[in-house]
């Protein structure tokens, strides 16, 4: 619908970034094996990167020709505050997961994000987050035995202790 009509805020910068990245990847792809052979490990990566570069350049030209939209701003339509908060929260999660462990990090993540996004009472945020984390923990850790980072909670010892408590079923 808006193809070839208008340019959204930040679009030109994004497409220029894609074109530059494609160029970088093409150079890197050439570095794998050069033009050594048709069957070389670099053949497909080079072809893919070349297609990326050419199409990105075409898109860039198309974008530059399109008039800028009047009724949109970066603050409102591209990076509204909720999205920025979410991205920050996710990044923080990624960094804290290893040191703090899955249980604490996930609980904090949910509680803070729900609180900020919904503005519900602190009590609601705490119990709903705790419930969700517990549910996910049971499904992934206990049933599917995915070993999540433990961090500062000695989970495996607690689980072993619980196991012994219930008649040493483990």
């Amino acid at each position: 619908m808006r193809e070839g009509q208008t340019r959204r805020p930040g679009e030109a910068v994004f497409v220029a970034f894609l074109a530059l990245a494609s160029l970088g990847l093409l150079i890197k792809a050439y570095g794998i094996a050069g033009f050594e052979a048709l069957s070389s490990p670099g053949a497909l990566p080079m072809a893919a990167a070349a297609v990326m570069l050419v199409s990105a350049l075409v898109i860039l030209v198309q974008t530059m020709q399109a008039p800028v939209t009047k009724d949109e701003t970066v603050r409102e339509h591209i990076l509204p505050i909720a999205v920025v908060v979410a991205i920050i929260a996710i990044t923080a999660y990624a960094f804290l997961l290893q040191p703090l462990g899955f249980l604490i990090t996930s609980f904090l993540f949910l509680a803070v994000l729900i609180r900020v996004l919904s503005g519900r009472s602190l009590f609601f945020c705490v119990w709903s987050s705790a419930l969700c984390v517990l549910l996910i923990y049971v499904v992934f850790r206990i049933i599917f035995t995915v070993l999540m980072p433990e961090g500062i909670v000695p989970e495996r010892e607690i689980l072993a202790w619980l196991g012994r408590l219930f008649g040493g079923a483990r």
């Binding site: 996710i90 990624a94 899955f102 993540f109 949910l110 996910i136 999540m148």
Partner: peptide, 29 residues
């Protein structure tokens, strides 16, 4: 406002679960 944070958390856990790898989480993000 409640559902989306839970979906994000599930996505993170799901990406981690594939190979128990934090690198996969970074890629997913």
């Amino acid at each position: 406002s409640v559902l989306i944070p839970v979906i994000i958390l599930l996505s993170i856990v799901g990406a981690y679960a594939v190979q128990s790898s934090l690198v996969d989480v970074y890629w997913m993000l």
